[in-house]
Each structure stands twice: as structure tokens, then as C-alpha cells.
Design a protein around this nucleic acid. Structure first.
Lengths: 218, 218
DNA sequence: ACCTGAACACCGTTCAAGT
DNA sequence: ACCTGAACACCGTTCAAGT
């Protein structure tokens, strides 16, 4: 009955809700159409193909990530990191907070998390976040060319971390098998949880350390 | 007619060859079976499911990556990096060479490259390479716990870089659109090619920089 | 002109039927 | 006991037929 309510935003919102509820496997054109109680082909009048729809859903999932600078010393996720940043390296706190916030927002939407950051961010939220990321890297002292390269490295790491987090349960078991196979004397409890916030933060710190070194060099 | 020649190794080898020729889209159970001139279900007597087969193909694609230490100052890919490493940071050269070699081996097999490093490495070659990676990180001065975390960060970055490289053509176009959308004054030529060796090396250097900082700290 | 749904060309995997 | 292929429950997308 909602004939005229079928538009790109409504479709993306329905797909997001469906993915939140039933996970990645539910994100097919047919099931999204069922969620909207419309013909699968009706979606194609608003998106050229499935990937374009997933791009829109991924962008929608990032709508809640705040990039307003005045919120930097708030109480949200990443606030502690922001508050603890030393003055000269304020960019570090902003960069870590930004990527942590994006990760958290993505994981609130398990149906689409694996798609987020896997493609260049052409949606409004993706571009907004990309701009903040670029500003932080410029502040870090990187050259224009290195800013572009560092951006892609950070997005690549984020994409892989999200893909891992989505499959986490299954993968943890396999990582323990790797530990056993190599006969490492690490007990299970010592292994970081794959896709955990702690694991993500560690890799992100490596990248930030590396960016600081590059920035001081240039 | 090759009734008894159907075994896990032969299946994985046929799938790898098919993927090299026809790309990622050809890696379906049905097309792999067609390549082997057998019933699709015959494969299930050797692998529990498609993912297990892809894991075997991914491991096979890494067979050519040499980890013999005596080859470290050879003429293969990464030799220059190895030769240029300063004595105290020999681990840096080894780590960069290892991951660069894995990347190159993966990209020689476009049908499976996107699957490599996307799951914990339980195959013989994956475990072999994992062990060399671990040794390099121990040499870098990381604690046991940090070695595990850094390993996962490096593998995550590698997986994302490979996934990007496989889709490169399509993605480059989109990255240029991002640049235009943000009205950055970068001309197209200045943007790094997504998934290129140069782009990969930059991100890897960031991670290695970061690991060095962590190792000196601990 | 706009919209619908049947149809095409596929999937991974199960399972009943054959040998 | 082992093996086969028909069948199940899906896909994304095209396109001819309807309104």
C-alpha cells in the first residue's frame, strides 16, 4: 500500500533495519523487497544494482558519527582518548576517535558492517568523514601525496577489521587452532579477541605511530 | 576418465588454474567441477564445503613464497629492501620482504587473491609464513601478547590491500570521484593507484614504523 | 510511459535413489 | 558402502508483456 513511499532513502532504511535484525545473509534484493512488501524489480528503479544499494546502506549506517569539532571533549566513545592527547599531537586523538567511532557505528549494524569502508566513500556521510580524516592527516604533517596514501591505508585497515569483527566467533576458533599448530606457548586467554576493540586499537596505534614518524620526517 | 585422480590437491590445483584464467567469478563449485570434468558433488567428498576448498586454494597460491633465510640476500622481490636494512633492524627488512612477497604471490592468482589472508592461516604454507612473521615481530622487541596483536593487524592490512588490488580498476575511478567531491586540489596523476605496490608499501611502512616505536617502548 | 512478474542463468548444498 | 544427479531453496538481473 505505500506506493509513493518507495524512494532511495526508504529502501536503504528498510535494508539497514533488515540487516540489523537478520544479519549479512539477509541483504539480498529479494529479501529487502520482501521487507518493503514490493517487487524485487521495484528497487531497480531507484538503484542501478545491488552494490549501489549496499553503498547507500553503508553510508546511512554512518549517519550517527559526529564530526562536529565542539563535540571533541564530550563524553561519547573516544572522549577519553581525545582528552588525553598531548597538545602538539591533537590530530592523533582526533584520528583515533574518528576511526573508533566509525568502527562502533558500523558494528551497531552487523548486516552492513562488512561492506563499510570496503569501497571509496562517495555517500554524504562517507565524504564528511573522509574530509575529517584528511584534515587530521594534514595536521600530522604529511605531504598531500602521503595524506592520500595514508588515508587509503587507514581505510583498508578499518575495512579488514570490520570484516573480521563480523565473522568473529568463527574466526576466534580458527586463530586458536593456528596457535596450537605453531606450538606457541600462549594460552587461549592471552590471545586477543579477533575483531575486538582492543585488537582494533592496537593496530590503529601502530598506524598512528607510523604516521607520526612520517610527519616528523617530512 | 581420471576417476582415482580426484583428490584434494588435484581439486585445489584445478581451481587455482581456473581462477588464474577466468578470475574470482569463476570460483564456484559448479565451474570447478566442470574444470575437473566431474560432478559438483564429487568435490564434497574431499572438502566439507566451498570455503574449505577456497582455503586450500589460497594456501596453494602461497606455495612459491620462499622463507628460507639463506635466500634473504638473493635477487628476488624484496632483495633490495633486505640488503638496505640497517643491522639492528634486520627484522624490518624481513617483515617487509615477507609481506611484499606474499602480496606478489597472491596477485599472480587473481581468482583467489581476494580470499588470501582473509581467514586465519591453517594450511601448511600459511602456517609457515605465519611462523616467519612471528619471528620477525619477536625480533622487533614486542611482547608475546603484542606479537599476536601486531600479526593480526598486519594480516588485516594485507587482506584489505589484496581485496582492493583485485577490484583495482573499478575502484580507481571511484577514488577519483572522491577527490573531485571534496574539491581537493590534487590532479589525478598524483593520486596513488589503489592496490598498487607503492600504495601497499606506504601502509606497510606506517605499520613497521609503528611496530618499531612499540618495540623500543617495551 | 510506467510498472510488473515471469524467466534466465546461475548459486551451494541436501538427500533420495541408484549401483 | 560408495557414488551420482535430481531437487531444494535460493541468487542478481533481463526483458517481454501488461496497464
Amino acid at each position: 500500500m505505500p506506493k509513493r513511499s518507495l524512494n532511495p532513502d526508504a529502501i536503504a532504511a528498510a535494508a539497514l533495519a533488515l540487516g540489523d535484525r537478520d544479519g549479512q545473509a539477509a541483504m539480498s534484493m529479494r529479501r529487502i523487497a520482501a521487507e518493503l512488501a514490493c517487487d524485487p524489480m521495484a528497487i531497480y528503479r531507484h538503484f542501478p544494482n545491488r552494490e549501489a544499494l549496499l553503498d547507500a546502506v553503508a553510508d546511512l549506517a554512518l549517519a550517527g558519527v559526529v564530526t562536529d569539532r565542539s563535540a571533541d571533549v564530550g563524553t561519547g566513545p573516544g572522549a577519553a582518548v581525545r582528552a588525553g592527547a598531548s597538545p602538539g599531537f591533537e590530530w592523533e586523538g582526533r584520528l583515533i576517535a574518528l576511526l573508533s567511532d566509525v568502527r562502533e557505528a558500523a558494528l551497531r549494524h552487523p548486516g552492513i558492517a562488512g561492506h563499510i569502508a570496503s569501497r571509496p566513500p562517495l555517500g554524504p556521510n562517507g565524504l564528511r568523514l573522509h574530509r575529517v580524516l584528511t584534515e587530521a592527516l594534514v595536521a600530522a604533517g604529511l605531504s598531500r601525496a602521503d595524506v592520500a596514501k595514508a588515508t587509503q591505508a587507514l581505510i583498508a585497515y578499518l575495512a579488514a577489521a570490520l570484516a573480521m569483527a563480523v565473522r568473529a566467533g568463527e574466526r576466534d576458533e580458527r586463530w586458536h587452532q593456528v596457535g596450537k599448530a605453531l606450538e606457541l606457548e600462549v594460552d587461549s586467554a592471552q590471545l586477543p579477541i579477533v575483531g575486538s576493540a582492543e585488537q582494533f586499537a592496537f593496530g590503529l596505534r601502530l598506524l598512528v605511530n607510523g604516521i607520526r614518524v612520517e610527519g616528523q620526517r617530512g
